[in-house]
Simulated assay, not measured.
Amino acid sequence: MRSVDPIELVVAALAVRERGGVPAIGDIRWSEGHWAELARSVNDAELPPGAAWATFSSGSTGSPRVIVRDARSWSTSFPALTRLMALTPNDVVLLPSPLVSSLSMFSIAHVLDAGATVMLPANSAVSAAECEPATALHGTPGALGSILDRIDAGARTHLRLALIGGAHLDATLRSRAEKAGIRVVSYYGAAELSFVAVDEAGHGLRAFDGVELRVVDGELWSRSPYAALGYLPGETGSFRTDANGWSSVGDSATLSVDGILTLQGRRDGAILTAAATVVPEDVEAVLRTLDGVKNSVVFGAPHPRLGSLVCAVIEPEDASTPPTSAALRAACRDRLGVAQIPRRWYLAPKLPLTSSGKPARAVIARDALAERMLRLA
């Protein structure tokens, strides 16, 4: 079924689920070739016993993979999340992420279970009229920022809570929302793992109810009833589960003695430059604090002597007056190690995003290296 009407898609997906099938909603923006390839792999696949839902990885590093899970892997987390959101049947939950996102499909199942109302925007951008009836938001930092822009421009809203996942939540954005009277709860999770850790008030991520955490050789592992069954047979990815039920998607992290989880990005995303290892997310966190920088993506460009050069693509606060590379380098000197400071700087008026609201890292790096972005002198 190919449709751009979100309500029609949700009704169709829930009908498939009611009949005992396994619904999966794709992205209308996928190419015909990708749709055909995906249809072949799905039609030929033998689903594992108990399969109830299928979602997709975000595709930030390649083509989306089909992730299969049983019903309990989502429903078991519903009571804890309902308590965390203080959700009641009177709530209207706004879900602005595309339906291809596992965040959206999970949310629809959860909100309906809680007896609340699901609100799907007509377009990718939430309108001022759609802001008003919403009492809760489950989405990405980008969605929250867009709604706050609407509120600043005079839109009325009853929004009391924003549940934010899918990407890094900047402390400034949290503060801005709280000043608008919106409680912000951020979390870390993955399409393969569902909820892993939650930050209720900006004091740091802690294990979500029912989740155990451990870090082994710098890699985060979790154990919970929320993990997926795995990918479709024949597909491979970063998701691994050991014999004792511990799962990982390859994220680097540290875990303090009092249980605060600090994420440091995917291990396979690290940049090796002149024998130093640079974690892109560490550099990005600093760049987002610099004057004139709204968002950034850091990646490695091949170099014959150094292995890789650290490169940064900057989305400026004001596209008409972007910061210069000299100003950015100067601002980084006291905040980053020598190896971490980007050698090349590129400018993107707006960073491309994946369907789930994360920066499209592979696309951004490809376009920068192909000089399809302005390179700052």
Rank of each mutant, 00 (worst) to 15 (best):
A362W: 00
L144C: 02
G21T: 04
A24N: 08
R375F: 00
G357V: 04
A136F: 00
A162P: 05
G166W: 03
L290R: 10
P141A: 13
A362L: 05
D70N: 14
R366K: 13
K358F: 00
E192M: 02
K350L: 14
D152G: 06
E212S: 10
A377G: 15
G265T: 13
H34D: 10
M1V: 13
A143V: 15
H34L: 12
L84F: 12
G115A: 10
Y346K: 00
I25N: 04
A114N: 03
G265F: 09
E192G: 00
P280L: 03
S320E: 11
P48W: 04
A330V: 14
Y346T: 03
T117I: 09
Y346F: 15
G234K: 08
A348I: 01
L232Q: 04
S102R: 00
S186A: 15
S127F: 01
A167L: 05
A253M: 09
R29H: 12
D242Y: 06
S308R: 14
V100Y: 00
A330E: 15
S224F: 15
V293Q: 07
G210A: 13
A377W: 00
G50W: 00
D242G: 12
R288Q: 13
S124A: 11
A377D: 11
L255W: 06
L290Q: 07
D152Y: 12
S97R: 03
P233R: 07
S104R: 06
A143G: 04
V313E: 06
F195D: 09
R333A: 09
V279I: 12
L148E: 02
S75L: 14
N123R: 14
L120K: 07
P342W: 00
D282V: 12
E315W: 08
E371W: 14
L94K: 10
A197Q: 01
R83T: 12
T55A: 11
S97L: 13
S356M: 03
A13W: 05
V257W: 14
P323H: 03
A253R: 04
R183I: 06
K294L: 11
L351I: 01
K294V: 05
H110C: 02
S194W: 09
G337C: 05
S224M: 07
P302E: 06
A365V: 03
W35T: 10
T324D: 10
G21Y: 02
I164E: 01
D318C: 11
C131K: 02
A253S: 12
D334S: 15
M119G: 12
D217L: 03
V92Q: 10
D291N: 15
G237R: 01
